[in-house]
């Protein structure tokens, strides 16, 4: 079985090389290749389903991780060349290992991907209605950080609610059963729960902040393979375009990819989730600035020594080059 798999793999590589030569781009001796760490989230499922590297002659070696933390550990250990990071984890890495990586692109962001859900029969329509009630959330997550900012903007604080810490997978069931009065969750959990008809979303964190994730590349890899990094960022631009312009198709692709492992999920739910996630890879100052309050509160809590210089980690040139590459496509 594993032999067969590696055979198929080598066949695929051979086929990839053949198309390269045929297309006449293969002026360089070997195709660029890059190892990417992914997670079980809808954009990554779309990315897994299509060979986004093929148009650029980029070999993608994809590994799936069950959590962002594992993916970043593998990244630091040199097991993958690129990974996603945001919020507290990125701040810790920037504070403790600033020499090991660059920030080359933005990944998923947008406040709309976080929402507050309540049971169908609930009469609550705003956060004020939930005052003094139980709210299920994943404390320590980026979602919870944004939720706290949202509370502040509405003149409330955590202490106005009874926050119950739970896993994101349990939030929907807890809300449905009435164990908590509301839940704060991220996509695709909100969209799938809505699609199941189990709960309704009453509040979106749209406009609260963007809570960005960034694409990190190991420095040693980027310095040696600048073309591969640029090509990789180009594939992200293509992915973002696909999701933005054809969310229905993207939802379908993701659902098919997930069904490969025997798991059923409604394409419509994934489509809804994908329309709530922003994917433009350009790193903007506004996105970077959102890391500062996170870093400041972590420095105040003694989790890091000083607020790191995030701007110094950003390398724009890969994105610029990627734009050129996608333009010629």
């Amino acid at each position: 079985m594993f032999k067969a798999l590696s055979f198929v793999k080598s066949l695929a590589t051979a086929a990839g090389l053949a198309t390269l030569v045929a297309a006449g781009i293969g002026s360089a001796a070997a195709a660029d290749s890059i190892r990417v760490g992914l997670q079980a989230v809808p954009p990554d499922e779309v990315y897994k389903a299509r060979d986004f590297g093929a148009p650029y002659g980029l070999d993608l070696e994809l590994s799936s991780f069950s959590s962002g933390s594992d993916s970043l550990k593998a990244f630091l250990a040199g097991r993958v060349d690129v990974a996603n990071g945001g919020s507290a984890r990125l701040v810790t890495m920037a504070a403790q290992q600033p020499d090991t990586f660059y920030i080359v692109a933005a990944n998923q962001y947008g406040g709309d991907r976080y929402g507050v859900i309540v049971a169908n029969e609930s009469t609550a329509t705003s956060i004020a209605d939930l005052k003094g009630k139980k709210i299920g959330a994943v404390t320590g997550s980026g979602t919870f950080n944004t939720f706290r900012v949202f509370l502040e903007q509405n003149g409330l604080s955590e202490s106005d609610f009874e926050i119950v810490n739970m896993k994101v997978e349990d939030i929907r069931a807890a809300v449905q059963r009435g164990i908590v009065d509301a839940g704060v969750a991220w996509e695709p959990h909100v969209a799938i729960a809505e699609n199941l008809g189990a709960v309704k979303r009453i509040i979106s964190m749209e406009g609260v902040n963007e809570s960005p994730n960034f694409v990190l590349v190991r420095r040693s890899f980027a310095d040696e393979n600048p073309d591969a990094v640029a090509k990789y960022v180009a594939t992200l631009i293509d992915l973002a375009n696909l999701i933005k312009t054809k969310p229905e198709e993207a939802g379908q692709i993701a659902a098919e990819q997930i069904s490969q492992s025997g798991v059923n999920v409604e394409p419509a739910a994934l489509e809804l989730a994908l329309t709530r996630i922003k994917m433009d890879p350009q790193v903007t100052d506004a996105l970077l600035a959102e890391l500062l309050p996170v870093a400041e509160s972590m420095a105040a809590a003694g989790k890091i020594d000083a607020v790191p210089d995030f701007k110094g980690l950003v390398r724009d040139e890969y994105y610029e080059k990627a734009r050129e590459l996608t333009a010629t496509q």
């Binding site: 079980a40 069950s66 929907r172 729960a193 492992s261 025997g262 798991v263 999920v265």
Partner: peptide, 14 residues
């Protein structure tokens, strides 16, 4: 892995 994926995408029967 199947249980993990089914749990993350709320496919409870699977």
């Amino acid at each position: 892995y199947m249980i993990f994926a089914a749990r993350s995408y709320m496919d409870v029967p699977t």
